[in-house]
């Protein structure tokens, strides 16, 4: 004897919960398969050096102004905040070291990563999404070219290599922003500020930020490529893909930042 079906008033809310959960799980599964496929192609020929060089320029070089400006203002604001907080217990001398450590460990990689996510993940998703909608991806296949190898691999590789460099540059500019504010607004002695920064900043602080940058770069390009290739039809489909790429990469950056901080600094 078969069991009686659930009453409709019970089934409807359950279906309303179940449908998005299943869709979400399916999306995570597709994302995982896509990521593994891209990784498997990283080491297999053919390679596309021109596309890689182009991706280095568009992802790395052209992101320098936005990352630099973000770091400069963040470093300056950080110096002001720390000065205000530390003056409550006469610890103003800690400003240079906290600015440096804060920029190198957290704010440089996270804010740099988020700015690159906004600029690059959106651009990759929109570009690849448009290519899909206008049948350029199909055209690549008919021209015996694997779209993942030609479009995704150079971008993922370029972002994984250039975002750490952007983070390192951002760290330096952020520390300089703190120094500018410290010397010009907070009356620090320039040489003492720089000596304090150098004395307290350790190689591990910088290295952890750069390692985070590599992970964030990988996430940014991967999300841009995944959502671009999964784009729906028309302008609305491309728009949705672009939005999802930025949201997913931003959330994954913040989540992975916490996990990496646990790995690097807990205990």
């Amino acid at each position: 004897m078969s069991a009686a079906p659930a009453p409709r008033y019970l089934a409807r809310p359950l279906a309303a919960i179940g449908r998005p959960v299943l869709a979400g799980l399916a999306s995570v599964g597709r994302m995982a398969i896509f990521t593994l496929t891209v990784i498997s192609h990283l080491i297999r020929p053919p390679f596309y050096p021109r596309e890689f060089a182009h991706a280095i320029m568009t992802i790395g070089w052209y992101s320098l102004p936005v990352v630099g400006l973000t770091a400069l203002f963040t470093g300056g604001a950080l110096a002001l905040q720390i000065y205000d907080g530390s003056s409550r217990f006469s610890a103003e001398a800690a400003v240079p070291s906290i600015v440096a450590i804060g920029m190198a460990r957290e704010l440089g990689p996270v804010l740099g990563g988020l700015m690159v996510a906004a600029r690059v993940a959106s651009s990759i998703a929109a570009e690849i999404g448009t290519m899909k909608v206008t049948e350029q991806i199909d055209a690549l296949v008919t021209l015996s070219t694997n779209p993942i190898k030609y479009l995704a691999v150079p971008r993922v590789l370029a972002a994984t290599l250039t975002v750490p460099v952007l983070v390192a540059v951002g760290d330096s500019i952020g520390i300089m922003g703190g120094w500018l504010v410290g010397v010009n607004r907070l009356d620090f002695n320039s040489a003492a500020y720089l000596k304090n920064t150098i004395d307290f900043l350790e190689a591990a602080d910088v290295a952890s930020g750069i390692a985070k940058g590599a992970v964030f770069g990988f996430i940014i390009a991967m999300m841009g490529c995944f959502y671009g290739m999964s784009s729906g039809r028309g302008a609305q489909g491309v728009g949705k893909a672009t939005k999802l790429a930025v949201v997913a990469s931003s959330v994954l950056i913040l989540g992975s930042n916490y996990l990496l901080t646990e790995v690097f600094f807990s205990g």
Binding site: M131, T134, E135, Q136, A139, V141, T142, S144
Partner: peptide, 18 residues
């Protein structure tokens, strides 16, 4: 690849790479 090398295709919107 050898199979696809035998084909040429003109797409509806040309599908040129921008």
């Amino acid at each position: 690849d050898a199979f696809l090398a035998r084909f040429g295709m003109l797409f509806q919107g040309a599908a040129l790479f921008d």
